[in-house]
Amino acid sequence: MTPASKAAHRRVAQAAGQQVWIAFGGVADQPWMRLLRPGFRHCFAALSDEAGWTVIEPLTGRLMVARLPVDAGFDLPGFYRRAGLRVLGPFLPEAPMPHAWPLPRPLSCVGLCQALLGPKAPPAWTPFQLFQALGGREQENNHG
């Protein structure tokens, strides 16, 4: 990607008013996930812009990207909260850092969410660590 195309992508994201929301939840659908904190076994991102919502979710063995057939004004974070997920945001995606080597991140749910947030995303290995690093507070019997 050329510097001009990077700048163009950045301008398009800024002009569209893009925001990132991170949702946390999940059950142990893989045996190794039982090692992770219950309620924080998975995370995924929802991006809002002037045209609507895009969900980006890394699943075992594939990456799912879906443009949702809902109005741009739909309260997707509220929908996820009512479904029992913890949702943080909105976050503004950071501009790429010029002339910097990308940080090595595994293609995991946490690594994908960090990549969407940008180069200054907080360090984390697990969904719960990312939740805490982004300012989330776990509250008893309250998922919002």
Rank of each mutant, 00 (worst) to 15 (best):
R81F: 12
L112G: 04
L63Q: 07
S48A: 07
L116W: 00
G26L: 07
W21V: 03
W32Q: 14
P122Q: 02
G118T: 01
C109I: 04
N142R: 15
L130E: 08
L35R: 12
R62T: 05
M64P: 02
T126H: 04
T54K: 03
P58W: 10
M1T: 13
P31G: 08
P127F: 11
A15F: 05
R11N: 10
V87A: 04
Q114Y: 01
P31Y: 10
V65A: 12
K6C: 12
S108D: 03
Q30G: 05
G136E: 01
G118R: 01
V70R: 12
A100W: 00
E138P: 02
R86T: 07
P69D: 14
T2A: 00
A15M: 06
A66G: 02
F131H: 15
A95P: 03
T2C: 02
R41A: 10
A51C: 06
Y80H: 10
E138A: 13
I22Y: 06
P58A: 08
A4R: 15
S5K: 11
P3S: 12
W21G: 01
T60D: 15
P122F: 03
T54G: 01
G136N: 03
P3T: 09
F24H: 02
W21I: 02
R137S: 10
G61S: 13
E50Q: 07
